[in-house]
């Protein structure tokens, strides 16, 4: 975990939270490995493709770069990604809707917001048949769920990587 701490420190402390830092990690059930990080220039001269309005989805643009084939920085596809074999995104800002969409596309199961000490499970609800999807949709609507409840389930389970990351960087605030 030492390298994760080092990487995260480099991004979150050296660059500062105003730069909307993001770290992409890989989790194999035992350890978390930092794969890359990125941030957005507050003056708008971003190294990334997109920045808009008052939200700067640095996770989205980082994942976009990672998805470019042939550039040598592509995130490998994880076969049968699950909770203990997946990518995890760590954001220093509240993740945007587009961040969740991109996270889904890139085999991420969790997105953390270190600014608030919260995390979300990225929806992996992919039914096998159309009828299942209809049933699920109806079920969610009947519950009156809003998008964050239905699509991105807020975390409650005590994942070891979550406690470690939060404890190391946020201390008692999120433990």
């Amino acid at each position: 975990m030492a390298r994760v701490k080092q990487e995260l420190e480099a991004v979150f402390k050296t660059q500062g939270k105003s730069l909307f830092p993001t770290v992409v990690c890989k989790y194999n059930g035992k350890t978390v490995t930092c794969i890359s990080h990125g941030y957005v220039d507050p003056k708008g001269k971003s190294e990334y493709l997109a920045a808009f309005g008052d939200t700067i989805p640095s996770l989205s643009v980082l994942l976009n770069l990672h998805s470019q084939k042939g550039g040598g920085i592509e995130l490998g596809d994880i076969k049968d990604a699950d909770d203990e074999n997946c990518y995890i995104a760590v954001c220093g800002y509240p993740p945007t809707i587009s961040d969740f969409g991109m996270a889904y596309r890139n085999n991420m199961r969790f997105v953390l917001d270190l600014a608030k000490g919260e995390f979300w499970r990225v929806n992996q609800n992919t039914p096998d048949t159309p009828n299942e999807r209809v049933a699920l949709l109806e079920e969610e609507k009947a519950k009156g769920h809003k998008i964050l409840d239905a699509e991105w389930e807020a975390g409650g389970k005590d994942f070891p990587w979550y406690r470690t990351i939060c404890t190391e960087f946020l201390g008692s605030r999120s433990s």
Partner: peptide, 8 residues
Amino acid sequence: LPLRHLDF
């Protein structure tokens, strides 16, 4: 397709 933001 899973449940999507546009579904909501």
